[in-house]
Computed example of a mutant assay.
Amino acid sequence: MPPDIFDRGARRRRRDRAAPDYAAHDFVRTAMLDGIADRLATVTRSFEAILDLGCFDGSFPAPPGARVARCDSGFAFARGSGGVQADEDCLPFADGAFDCVVSAGVLDQVNDLPGALTLARRALRPDGLFLAAFVGGGSLPALRATLRAAEPEPPAARLHPQIDVRSAGDLLVRAGFALPVADVETLDVGYGDLGRLLSDLRGMAATNVLRNRAPLASATLAAAARAFAARADVAGRVRERFDIVFLTGWAPDASQPLPARRGSATTSLADALRSRPSAD
Protein backbone atom coordinates (compact mmCIF):
# COMPACT_ATOMS: atom_id res chain seq x y z
CA MET A 1 0.00 0.00 0.00
CA PRO A 2 1.29 3.50 -0.79
CA PRO A 3 1.87 5.81 2.19
CA ASP A 4 -1.08 7.97 3.17
CA ILE A 5 -0.70 11.56 1.96
CA PHE A 6 -4.06 12.61 3.36
CA ASP A 7 -5.35 12.21 6.90
CA ARG A 8 -8.38 9.95 6.43
CA GLY A 9 -9.90 10.86 9.80
CA ALA A 10 -9.53 14.59 9.21
CA ARG A 11 -11.04 14.23 5.76
CA ARG A 12 -14.13 12.51 7.18
CA ARG A 13 -14.50 15.19 9.86
CA ARG A 14 -14.18 18.02 7.33
CA ARG A 15 -16.86 16.43 5.18
CA ASP A 16 -19.16 16.03 8.18
CA ARG A 17 -18.56 19.67 9.11
CA ALA A 18 -19.40 20.82 5.58
CA ALA A 19 -22.55 18.72 5.18
CA PRO A 20 -25.15 20.98 6.90
CA ASP A 21 -24.43 24.05 4.73
CA TYR A 22 -22.97 22.38 1.67
CA ALA A 23 -25.61 23.72 -0.74
CA ALA A 24 -24.32 27.27 -0.16
CA HIS A 25 -20.83 26.34 -1.42
CA ASP A 26 -21.40 23.63 -4.04
CA PHE A 27 -20.77 25.69 -7.19
CA VAL A 28 -17.58 23.84 -8.21
CA ARG A 29 -19.21 20.43 -7.91
CA THR A 30 -22.29 21.76 -9.72
CA ALA A 31 -20.03 22.68 -12.65
CA MET A 32 -18.55 19.18 -12.50
CA LEU A 33 -21.98 17.54 -12.53
CA ASP A 34 -23.02 19.72 -15.47
CA GLY A 35 -19.95 18.56 -17.39
CA ILE A 36 -20.61 14.94 -16.50
CA ALA A 37 -24.24 15.31 -17.61
CA ASP A 38 -23.10 16.76 -20.94
CA ARG A 39 -20.79 13.80 -21.50
CA LEU A 40 -23.41 11.32 -20.40
CA ALA A 41 -25.89 12.84 -22.85
CA THR A 42 -23.62 11.93 -25.78
CA VAL A 43 -23.83 8.22 -24.89
CA THR A 44 -26.65 6.52 -26.77
CA ARG A 45 -27.07 3.57 -24.42
CA SER A 46 -29.02 3.54 -21.16
CA PHE A 47 -27.77 2.49 -17.73
CA GLU A 48 -29.50 0.43 -15.07
CA ALA A 49 -27.11 0.48 -12.08
CA ILE A 50 -24.99 3.58 -11.35
CA LEU A 51 -22.53 4.23 -8.54
CA ASP A 52 -22.22 7.84 -7.35
CA LEU A 53 -18.71 7.69 -5.89
CA GLY A 54 -18.15 10.56 -3.47
CA CYS A 55 -21.80 11.55 -3.48
CA PHE A 56 -21.75 14.60 -1.15
CA ASP A 57 -25.44 15.54 -0.77
CA GLY A 58 -26.66 13.09 -3.42
CA SER A 59 -27.31 15.84 -5.97
CA PHE A 60 -26.29 13.70 -8.96
CA PRO A 61 -29.71 12.95 -10.49
CA ALA A 62 -30.71 9.40 -11.33
CA PRO A 63 -31.26 9.04 -15.09
CA PRO A 64 -34.69 7.63 -16.08
CA GLY A 65 -34.93 3.94 -15.24
CA ALA A 66 -31.60 3.80 -13.40
CA ARG A 67 -30.85 2.85 -9.80
CA VAL A 68 -28.15 4.95 -8.14
CA ALA A 69 -26.06 3.67 -5.23
CA ARG A 70 -24.41 6.46 -3.22
CA CYS A 71 -21.06 6.26 -1.47
CA ASP A 72 -19.12 8.89 0.48
CA SER A 73 -16.17 8.86 2.86
CA GLY A 74 -18.05 11.19 5.23
CA PHE A 75 -20.70 9.76 7.53
CA ALA A 76 -23.08 12.74 7.28
CA PHE A 77 -23.07 12.81 3.46
CA ALA A 78 -23.45 9.02 3.26
CA ARG A 79 -26.33 8.98 5.73
CA GLY A 80 -28.08 12.01 4.22
CA SER A 81 -28.02 10.51 0.72
CA GLY A 82 -29.07 7.03 1.81
CA GLY A 83 -25.68 5.63 0.83
CA VAL A 84 -22.77 3.79 2.40
CA GLN A 85 -19.66 5.23 4.01
CA ALA A 86 -16.38 4.14 2.43
CA ASP A 87 -13.15 5.63 1.11
CA GLU A 88 -12.74 5.61 -2.64
CA ASP A 89 -9.67 3.38 -2.45
CA CYS A 90 -11.42 0.86 -0.14
CA LEU A 91 -14.72 0.18 -1.91
CA PRO A 92 -17.10 -2.48 -0.55
CA PHE A 93 -18.81 -3.26 -3.87
CA ALA A 94 -18.59 -6.51 -5.82
CA ASP A 95 -16.85 -6.71 -9.17
CA GLY A 96 -19.24 -6.00 -12.04
CA ALA A 97 -21.94 -4.52 -9.80
CA PHE A 98 -22.55 -1.41 -11.95
CA ASP A 99 -22.76 -0.43 -15.59
CA CYS A 100 -21.78 3.19 -14.85
CA VAL A 101 -19.65 4.88 -12.18
CA VAL A 102 -19.66 8.67 -11.76
CA SER A 103 -17.45 10.64 -9.39
CA ALA A 104 -17.45 14.41 -8.92
CA GLY A 105 -15.17 16.35 -6.62
CA VAL A 106 -13.33 13.73 -4.57
CA LEU A 107 -10.54 12.01 -6.49
CA ASP A 108 -8.06 14.81 -5.73
CA GLN A 109 -8.19 13.80 -2.03
CA VAL A 110 -7.64 10.04 -2.35
CA ASN A 111 -4.48 8.47 -0.94
CA ASP A 112 -4.26 5.64 -3.46
CA LEU A 113 -5.70 7.18 -6.60
CA PRO A 114 -4.42 4.44 -8.98
CA GLY A 115 -5.97 1.88 -6.65
CA ALA A 116 -9.25 3.82 -6.48
CA LEU A 117 -9.46 3.98 -10.27
CA THR A 118 -8.72 0.27 -10.52
CA LEU A 119 -11.49 -0.50 -8.01
CA ALA A 120 -13.91 1.69 -9.97
CA ARG A 121 -13.04 -0.18 -13.17
CA ARG A 122 -13.49 -3.54 -11.42
CA ALA A 123 -16.89 -2.44 -10.10
CA LEU A 124 -18.02 -1.94 -13.71
CA ARG A 125 -19.52 -4.59 -15.94
CA PRO A 126 -17.82 -5.14 -19.31
CA ASP A 127 -18.36 -2.05 -21.50
CA GLY A 128 -19.40 -0.06 -18.43
CA LEU A 129 -18.78 3.69 -18.38
CA PHE A 130 -16.65 5.68 -15.93
CA LEU A 131 -17.12 9.46 -15.72
CA ALA A 132 -15.26 11.57 -13.19
CA ALA A 133 -14.29 15.16 -12.46
CA PHE A 134 -12.01 16.72 -9.87
CA VAL A 135 -10.06 19.91 -9.19
CA GLY A 136 -6.77 19.51 -11.05
CA GLY A 137 -3.37 21.05 -11.62
CA GLY A 138 -3.25 24.82 -12.06
CA SER A 139 -6.11 25.50 -9.65
CA LEU A 140 -6.11 28.20 -6.95
CA PRO A 141 -3.09 30.16 -8.23
CA ALA A 142 -4.01 33.31 -6.30
CA LEU A 143 -4.29 31.44 -3.01
CA ARG A 144 -1.00 29.65 -3.60
CA ALA A 145 0.79 32.89 -4.41
CA THR A 146 -0.55 34.77 -1.39
CA LEU A 147 0.33 31.96 1.02
CA ARG A 148 3.87 31.81 -0.39
CA ALA A 149 4.21 35.57 0.01
CA ALA A 150 2.88 35.54 3.58
CA GLU A 151 4.81 32.65 5.05
CA PRO A 152 8.52 32.70 5.89
CA GLU A 153 10.82 30.10 4.39
CA PRO A 154 10.50 27.19 4.39
CA PRO A 155 6.74 27.39 3.76
CA ALA A 156 4.48 24.74 5.27
CA ALA A 157 2.38 22.43 3.10
CA ARG A 158 -0.91 24.31 2.84
CA LEU A 159 -2.52 23.07 -0.38
CA HIS A 160 -2.93 19.57 -1.75
CA PRO A 161 -0.74 18.25 -4.57
CA GLN A 162 -2.66 18.48 -7.83
CA ILE A 163 -2.90 16.20 -10.85
CA ASP A 164 -2.68 17.70 -14.32
CA VAL A 165 -4.76 16.51 -17.25
CA ARG A 166 -1.96 14.50 -18.89
CA SER A 167 -1.16 12.60 -15.69
CA ALA A 168 -4.87 11.95 -15.20
CA GLY A 169 -5.10 10.34 -18.63
CA ASP A 170 -2.08 8.18 -17.85
CA LEU A 171 -3.76 7.03 -14.63
CA LEU A 172 -6.83 5.92 -16.59
CA VAL A 173 -4.62 3.77 -18.81
CA ARG A 174 -2.75 2.38 -15.80
CA ALA A 175 -6.06 1.41 -14.17
CA GLY A 176 -7.03 -0.64 -17.22
CA PHE A 177 -9.70 1.55 -18.78
CA ALA A 178 -10.35 1.33 -22.51
CA LEU A 179 -10.87 4.35 -24.76
CA PRO A 180 -9.55 6.79 -22.11
CA VAL A 181 -10.15 10.52 -22.48
CA ALA A 182 -9.00 13.31 -20.15
CA ASP A 183 -9.80 16.97 -20.70
CA VAL A 184 -9.97 20.15 -18.64
CA GLU A 185 -12.38 23.05 -18.24
CA THR A 186 -11.73 26.23 -16.26
CA LEU A 187 -14.03 27.92 -13.76
CA ASP A 188 -13.14 31.54 -12.98
CA VAL A 189 -14.49 33.09 -9.75
CA GLY A 190 -14.12 36.60 -8.31
CA TYR A 191 -13.54 37.15 -4.58
CA GLY A 192 -13.67 40.37 -2.61
CA ASP A 193 -11.43 39.06 0.15
CA LEU A 194 -9.46 36.01 1.24
CA GLY A 195 -11.95 35.15 3.96
CA ARG A 196 -14.70 34.49 1.44
CA LEU A 197 -12.46 32.15 -0.55
CA LEU A 198 -11.47 30.23 2.57
CA SER A 199 -15.14 30.04 3.60
CA ASP A 200 -16.01 28.48 0.24
CA LEU A 201 -13.17 25.95 0.54
CA ARG A 202 -14.34 24.98 4.04
CA GLY A 203 -17.93 24.78 2.83
CA MET A 204 -17.05 22.44 -0.03
CA ALA A 205 -14.83 20.26 2.22
CA ALA A 206 -11.72 21.28 0.28
CA THR A 207 -9.42 22.59 3.00
CA ASN A 208 -6.08 21.08 3.96
CA VAL A 209 -6.25 17.44 5.09
CA LEU A 210 -2.60 16.56 4.47
CA ARG A 211 -1.12 14.33 7.14
CA ASN A 212 1.79 16.71 7.72
CA ARG A 213 -0.31 19.88 7.86
CA ALA A 214 0.60 22.61 10.33
CA PRO A 215 -1.65 25.25 11.95
CA LEU A 216 -1.88 28.57 10.15
CA ALA A 217 -0.69 31.32 12.50
CA SER A 218 -2.88 34.41 12.82
CA ALA A 219 0.00 36.67 11.71
CA THR A 220 0.50 34.54 8.58
CA LEU A 221 -3.22 34.61 7.82
CA ALA A 222 -3.29 38.41 8.18
CA ALA A 223 -0.29 38.76 5.86
CA ALA A 224 -1.95 36.44 3.35
CA ALA A 225 -5.14 38.51 3.46
CA ARG A 226 -3.13 41.67 2.68
CA ALA A 227 -1.28 39.95 -0.17
CA PHE A 228 -4.58 38.64 -1.54
CA ALA A 229 -6.18 42.08 -1.42
CA ALA A 230 -3.19 43.56 -3.29
CA ARG A 231 -4.08 41.35 -6.28
CA ALA A 232 -7.56 42.89 -6.67
CA ASP A 233 -8.63 44.34 -10.01
CA VAL A 234 -10.23 47.78 -10.49
CA ALA A 235 -13.56 46.34 -9.34
CA GLY A 236 -11.99 45.17 -6.09
CA ARG A 237 -12.17 41.49 -6.99
CA VAL A 238 -9.41 38.90 -7.06
CA ARG A 239 -9.83 36.32 -9.82
CA GLU A 240 -9.35 32.75 -8.67
CA ARG A 241 -9.29 29.74 -10.96
CA PHE A 242 -10.51 26.17 -10.58
CA ASP A 243 -9.27 23.83 -13.32
CA ILE A 244 -11.66 20.90 -13.52
CA VAL A 245 -10.22 17.71 -14.98
CA PHE A 246 -12.79 15.39 -16.57
CA LEU A 247 -12.10 11.69 -17.07
CA THR A 248 -13.94 9.27 -19.34
CA GLY A 249 -13.13 5.58 -19.65
CA TRP A 250 -14.79 2.27 -20.38
CA ALA A 251 -14.42 -1.14 -18.81
CA PRO A 252 -12.80 -3.30 -21.50
CA ASP A 253 -15.06 -5.41 -23.69
CA ALA A 254 -14.54 -7.37 -26.90
CA SER A 255 -17.19 -5.29 -28.69
CA GLN A 256 -15.16 -2.08 -28.41
CA PRO A 257 -13.17 -0.70 -31.36
CA LEU A 258 -9.46 -1.43 -31.26
CA PRO A 259 -6.66 0.92 -32.36
CA ALA A 260 -5.05 0.05 -35.67
CA ARG A 261 -2.06 -2.26 -35.43
CA ARG A 262 1.20 -0.33 -35.50
CA GLY A 263 2.64 -0.32 -39.01
CA SER A 264 -0.64 -1.36 -40.68
CA ALA A 265 -1.15 1.91 -42.61
CA THR A 266 -1.06 1.54 -46.41
CA THR A 267 -0.04 5.17 -47.10
CA SER A 268 2.82 7.03 -45.47
CA LEU A 269 2.31 10.47 -43.95
CA ALA A 270 5.08 11.85 -46.19
CA ASP A 271 3.26 10.62 -49.33
CA ALA A 272 -0.01 12.07 -48.10
CA LEU A 273 1.57 15.47 -47.52
CA ARG A 274 3.28 15.45 -50.93
CA SER A 275 -0.06 14.74 -52.62
CA ARG A 276 -1.77 17.81 -51.12
CA PRO A 277 -2.24 20.73 -53.54
CA SER A 278 0.04 23.67 -52.86
CA ALA A 279 -1.42 27.00 -51.69
CA ASP A 280 -1.55 29.89 -54.15
Score class of each variant (00 low, 15 high):
residue 3 P to L: 14
residue 3 P to R: 13
residue 4 D to F: 12
residue 6 F to E: 03
residue 7 D to V: 05
residue 11 R to V: 03
residue 18 A to V: 05
residue 20 P to F: 11
residue 20 P to I: 05
residue 27 F to N: 08
residue 29 R to F: 02
residue 31 A to G: 07
residue 31 A to S: 15
residue 32 M to T: 06
residue 35 G to A: 10
residue 38 D to K: 09
residue 39 R to T: 04
residue 42 T to D: 13
residue 45 R to P: 00
residue 47 F to P: 02
residue 49 A to G: 01
residue 52 D to F: 03
residue 53 L to M: 15
residue 57 D to E: 13
residue 63 P to L: 09
residue 64 P to W: 00
residue 65 G to L: 00
residue 66 A to E: 01
residue 66 A to P: 00
residue 68 V to F: 02
residue 68 V to I: 14
residue 71 C to H: 04
residue 73 S to I: 00
residue 76 A to M: 11
residue 78 A to I: 02
residue 80 G to V: 00
residue 80 G to H: 07
residue 83 G to F: 09
residue 86 A to W: 07
residue 88 E to M: 06
residue 89 D to G: 08
residue 89 D to P: 10
residue 92 P to T: 10
residue 94 A to G: 07
residue 106 V to I: 12
residue 109 Q to A: 13
residue 112 D to P: 07
residue 115 G to C: 10
residue 118 T to P: 03
residue 119 L to G: 02
residue 120 A to D: 06
residue 123 A to C: 15
residue 124 L to M: 09
residue 124 L to S: 04
residue 125 R to M: 11
residue 129 L to P: 00
residue 132 A to F: 01
residue 144 R to H: 14
residue 149 A to K: 14
residue 149 A to Y: 06
residue 150 A to F: 10
residue 151 E to D: 12
residue 151 E to I: 08
residue 157 A to M: 11
residue 159 L to F: 13
residue 162 Q to H: 02
residue 163 I to H: 07
residue 164 D to E: 12
residue 164 D to N: 15
residue 166 R to S: 13
residue 177 F to T: 07
residue 178 A to P: 08
residue 178 A to R: 10
residue 179 L to A: 12
residue 185 E to I: 09
residue 186 T to D: 15
residue 189 V to L: 15
residue 192 G to C: 10
residue 193 D to W: 06
residue 198 L to Q: 09
residue 199 S to G: 14
residue 203 G to L: 11
residue 204 M to R: 09
residue 204 M to E: 05
residue 210 L to A: 05
residue 211 R to F: 03
residue 211 R to I: 13
residue 212 N to P: 00
residue 213 R to L: 06
residue 219 A to K: 13
residue 220 T to G: 07
residue 225 A to L: 01
residue 226 R to F: 02
residue 230 A to L: 07
residue 236 G to K: 04
residue 237 R to A: 13
residue 237 R to V: 13
residue 238 V to F: 03
residue 238 V to S: 03
residue 243 D to H: 14
residue 245 V to T: 14
residue 248 T to H: 08
residue 248 T to L: 11
residue 249 G to I: 02
residue 249 G to V: 05
residue 250 W to F: 12
residue 252 P to R: 02
residue 253 D to K: 02
residue 254 A to T: 14
residue 259 P to M: 09
residue 259 P to R: 11
residue 261 R to C: 08
residue 261 R to V: 12
residue 263 G to V: 07
residue 265 A to K: 05
residue 270 A to S: 13
residue 271 D to V: 03
residue 272 A to M: 14
residue 276 R to C: 08
residue 279 A to C: 03
